[in-house]
Amino acid sequence: MPPTDASTDAGTAPATELATDTGPCSGPSSGSGASTDSEDTLDLRLPDELIALFAEEAGTQGGTASHGTGKAFGDATGETKADAPGGARGERRGMAETPAVAPVDDDLLDRVGGWGPTDTPVGVFHLVPVRVERDLPLITRWMNDPAVAAFWELAGPESVTEEHLRLQLDGDGRSVPCLGVLDGTPMSYWEIYRADLDLLARHYPARPHDTGIHLLIGGVANRGRGLGSTLLRAVADHVLDKRPSCARVVAEPDLRNTPSVSAFLSAGFRFSAEVDLPDKRAALMVRDRALRDLL
Rank of each mutant, 00 (worst) to 15 (best):
P47F: 12
H203D: 01
G219F: 10
D276Y: 12
V235L: 09
R93D: 08
G228T: 06
G27L: 09
P47K: 04
G226T: 08
H203Q: 01
R174N: 10
G63R: 14
R233W: 12
F125K: 09
D21M: 03
L255H: 00
S272R: 13
P3N: 13
A13Q: 07
R45S: 15
V239D: 07
V239T: 09
D241H: 09
V261S: 01
T211N: 10
A96W: 05
V112M: 02
R131S: 13
A283E: 04
P244W: 10
G171C: 02
P2N: 04
V122W: 04
S7R: 06
G31P: 06
E56V: 01
S188A: 11
A263Q: 00
L216C: 14
A10F: 10
L18F: 07
V220E: 14
G226W: 06
E56G: 11
D43Y: 15
R289D: 15
S66H: 04
E163A: 10
I217W: 02
G11F: 02
L165R: 06
S7Q: 06
D135H: 15
G180F: 00
P208Y: 01
R289C: 06
E17I: 04
A206K: 00
D293F: 10
D293Q: 13
V181S: 02
R92Y: 03
C25A: 14
C178F: 10
M285R: 08
S7I: 07
E49P: 00
E252N: 05
V261T: 03
G70C: 00
I51E: 14
E97Y: 11
L200I: 05
A72C: 02
T120K: 11
H164R: 06
D110V: 05
P28D: 07
S159I: 08
G87Y: 05
D172L: 11
D254V: 00
S38D: 11
A6M: 06
S66I: 01
T161K: 04
R92A: 02
W190Y: 09
A88N: 12
A100K: 14
R93P: 12
R223P: 05
N144M: 10
L169S: 01
F271I: 03
L167G: 00
D75P: 12
L231G: 01
I51K: 06
R194S: 13
V235P: 01
H67Y: 03
A65K: 03
G268W: 08
R248C: 02
D106P: 04
P278E: 07
N144P: 01
D37N: 14
Q61F: 13
M187L: 06
I192E: 07
L216G: 10
L216P: 03
L240I: 06
R131N: 11
A6L: 11
G70K: 04
L44P: 00
A221I: 14
E162Q: 14
A234C: 10
L109M: 12
N222W: 07
P99G: 12
P259F: 00
R287G: 08
L138Q: 11
A82L: 14
D293S: 14
A34F: 07
G156K: 03
